[in-house]
Amino acid sequence: MNGARIWDISPPVDAGAPVFPGDAPYRHQWAARMGPGCPVNLQTLTLSPHTGAHADAPLHYDDAGAAIGMLDLAPYLGRCRVVHAIGVRPLVRWEHLAHAADTLPERVLVRSYQRAPVGRWDPALAGFDPEALERLADLGVRLVGIDSASVDPADSKTLDAHQVLRRRELRVLENLVLDDVPEGDYELIALPLKLVTADASPVRAILREIR
C-alpha cells in the first residue's frame, strides 16, 4: 500500500468544535509548562467522548449495552463504501443509497453535506431512516457512518435509528468529514480508544486508497 492516497475524514478538535447542546465542550488547561525545573509541557483535557469524529458504543443508547472499549475492533477497520446523499434532509432513505448498493462491503459511510459544518452545531442535521439501516444490515453491513453529528434527527426523543443499531448490532461513526471524498470504495481505519467504561470514543478516522 506504499504511496496510496489517504483522506483524513476527521474534523478538527479544539475549543470551536461543536457538540450536542448541553454536552461538555472541549477545554484544555496547562498542568505544567516548560521552564526551570520542568522539562515538558503537559495539558489536561476535558471533552465529551462524542467530540469530533467518534464511535458510539451500545452503552450510549442501551443501559445494558457494552462500553466502547469492550467492542471488537474489526468493524472499524477494512473495506468501506462512501455514498453521496448530499442535501438530503431530514432522513437518508434507502432510495438515496440504492444506486450504490451492489455488492456492498461491510462498512458504509454517507456524505450528506456539501461542506460539513465543522465549526458550528447544525440543528437540521441529516439522520438515517430506520428502514435504510435495516436494509443495510440485511445486506451484511456491520458499520455505518455519516458526516452529521447523529444518525437520528437532533430533536428526536425516540432515537429510532439508534434502536436499529442496537437491535441489529451495527457499529456507527458520526461527525465524519467527507467533503472531498468521491463515491467509491476505500479502506477505512477509525479505531476507538480502549475506554472500558465510556459510551463513545473519539476516533482519528481516515480512508486509504485501494489499489
Rank of each mutant, 00 (worst) to 15 (best):
A161M: 07
L188A: 03
L193Y: 14
R166P: 01
V110F: 09
S112K: 07
L143T: 08
G127I: 03
V141K: 14
W7I: 04
A200T: 08
I6R: 15
P21K: 00
G35I: 01
W94M: 06
A85D: 02
D185K: 04
H28R: 13
S112V: 11
L191R: 07
A198W: 08
T158I: 11
Q163F: 05
A100E: 14
V196S: 12
Q163M: 11
I189D: 15
P21W: 04
A149E: 13
G22F: 06
A57L: 04
H99Y: 15
A101W: 08
S201G: 13
Y61T: 04
L136I: 06
G127E: 10
N41H: 10
N41T: 03
R208W: 12
A74T: 03
S148L: 10
P130D: 12
A98S: 14
E169P: 04
W7R: 05
L176R: 03
P105V: 00
P39A: 03
T51Q: 15
S48Q: 03
G37E: 02
T158D: 15
T51L: 15
A55L: 00
S10L: 04
Y26H: 08
A149N: 15
A200C: 09
P182L: 05
R135W: 13
A101L: 03
R135N: 14
Y113A: 10
P182S: 00
A116I: 13
M70D: 14
L59G: 01
A15G: 15
G87L: 05
V13E: 08
V88G: 05
A24W: 11
L207I: 07
M34P: 08
D160P: 09
L125M: 15
L125K: 09
C38H: 06
P11A: 09
L97W: 07
W7M: 06
I189K: 13
R107W: 02
D155H: 15
S156Y: 04
K194H: 12
P202Q: 13
P90R: 06
L133Q: 14
R135V: 13
A24T: 11
A190K: 02
P18I: 06
R81P: 05
G87W: 05
A74M: 06
A100Q: 14
A190R: 00
E187G: 10
G140A: 11
I86K: 11
G69R: 00
S10D: 07
V13A: 08
A55G: 04
D8R: 15
A53G: 02
C38V: 06
P21N: 00
L207M: 13
D72L: 07
N2T: 14
Q43W: 11
R27N: 02
R79T: 09
D152Q: 10
Q114P: 11
A116G: 14
G35M: 00
L73S: 00
I68N: 07
G65R: 05
A205E: 14
M70T: 14
E187S: 10
T46E: 14
D155E: 14
L188I: 00
R79A: 12
H162W: 10
L176Y: 02
I210D: 11
P11V: 05
